[in-house]
Amino acid sequence: MNCDEANVLMHALIDGELDAGHAREVEDHIAVCPVCAARLREFTEFRQAMNPAALRHAAPASLRARIEGKLPAPQAAASRRSVIKGFAFGATASALAASGLLAMVMRGDDDRRVLGEVVSAHLRSLQAQHLTDVVSSDQHTVKPWFNGRLDVAPPVVDLTALGFTLLGGRLDYVDAKPVAAIVYRRRVHVINLFCAPAAGATRRKAAMESLHGFNVRRWTENGLNLWAVSDINAEELTEFGEKFEAGLRG
């Protein structure tokens, strides 16, 4: 790799957008090139000085009101069928888009694909009358059930007193690997908590994403990747995630 290439790619490195192979190439160059090493340091420091939160603009409340006023008044909630139909279309479109993508492998692509898979698994669990393999509201029944079925011991936390009823557990598949699905209920809404061993980092801060009208909160803790998927709103799903994390720490 030469300096011109490194000058461009070091930004992708800073942003965590390079796959392991390309990251290694940039790092190898920087290890032997003091000019590029200094440049990388300068940009890293400069970005730290940026303070993005302060550079944001908050939309005035009047604008939100104006927009809401121009949209037609809502009636019934979306039917499950229409959501599923939209989802099928989405999957096809994503597959087409993915096949035409350029060769460089970006970390974001992988995350996005797995996100699609967990939402898909969530939908399957609701459609196929196969929500739980082990039905129990007792965490001491659900947790041991996974013994011998998975090479991880998924965390099961009783959150009934906090408004999230434990329904049971299920073996599912995400990214062609078996994962634990722990099933909770909030009022009439189902929350699937998927749990799989994490390959890289042992800890990653929670991020909320939304796909096809479902919210997904993903985070990594104790070497486990966790995805909470549900159609409840983002606030309640955040609450679920935070209570689950708190419950884990005892």
Binding site: R56, A59, I67, E68, P72, A73, P74, Q75, G213
Partner: peptide, 21 residues
């Protein structure tokens, strides 16, 4: 509004208002 289109749209799109702004 055909069967909750507005509700779905609002739930998906409005949380991004500040970023768009």
């Amino acid at each position: 509004d055909d069967g909750g289109k507005t509700a779905r749209f609002k739930a998906l799109a409005l949380p991004h208002l500040d970023e768009l702004y």
